[in-house]
């Protein structure tokens, strides 16, 4: 944690709203990206974003500041847990409509690609989403942290609070499960 962020964290601990807003601006994109790629719809991702910061600011008073870089890692860990909790709650709800609408929302913010390329991207993303839907919350999170957020095994283990061996084992199982599904779809 750099000196400036350390100061913001110290002020936020005392309830300074400006410091909280500064920390929010620094970390919101990374957390929203994690949340959105995990739940694949904007309202749920916004809920996760808000829950994460609310939990972080409320419990910040009880945290020690002697751990270098603790805030970014710590808030990311909160976000991971919030996302998995949210996913477990919403698992059986149908969010297809949200997902389609969110893709349209993405389109509006980007330069228009060719229609064929865009169709292909949508198709792949849709297939990936279908594949990930069969995984448990934890395996889904490990796959996402590994392949969407590009984290290393030791970083994932730290975030989830488990051993690297456990992460590797679950990642292997998840990838094997995904491969079987992919083969089944290709075969079909």
């Amino acid at each position: 944690m750099n000196i400036q962020e350390e100061n913001w964290v110290a002020l936020a601990r005392e309830g300074d709203p400006r410091a909280m807003h500064e920390l929010y601006e620094r970390h919101r994109s990374r957390i929203f990206s994690l949340a959105y790629r995990y739940v694949r719809n904007i309202p749920d991702a916004e809920d996760i974003l808000q829950d994460t910061f609310i939990k972080a600011f409320r419990s910040l008073k009880n945290r020690a500041l002697d751990d270098d870089g603790f805030f970014s890692t710590w808030i990311y860990r909160i976000a991971v847990n919030c996302a998995m909790d949210h996913f477990r709650r919403r698992r059986h709800e149908d969010v297809d409509g949200d997902w389609q609408r969110d893709f349209l929302a993405v389109d509006e913010t980007r330069a228009a690609p060719s229609p064929e390329r865009e169709y292909q991207r949508h198709e792949v993303a849709f297939q990936v989403r279908r594949l990930l839907d069969g995984l448990t919350a934890r395996k889904r999170m490990i796959v996402q942290l590994r392949h969407f957020q590009q984290l290393k095994i030791d970083e994932i283990a730290e975030l989830l609070g488990c051993s690297q061996g456990s992460v590797k084992k679950q990642l292997f199982l998840a990838m094997a499960q995904l491969r079987v599904k992919m083969d089944a779809r290709c075969g079909g």
């Binding site: 916004e46 808000q50 792949v124 849709f126 969407f148």
Partner: peptide, 30 residues
């Protein structure tokens, strides 16, 4: 499989940051 996942990660939309902040600020305000 990893390449397919990376390709299917998709872009992340931009949410309404201010609306989220207003909710957070209201929740943590003393």
């Amino acid at each position: 499989t990893g390449a397919l996942l990376a390709e299917g990660a998709g872009d992340v939309p931009v949410p309404d940051w201010d609306r989220s902040w207003r909710r957070i600020a209201a929740a943590v305000a003393p």
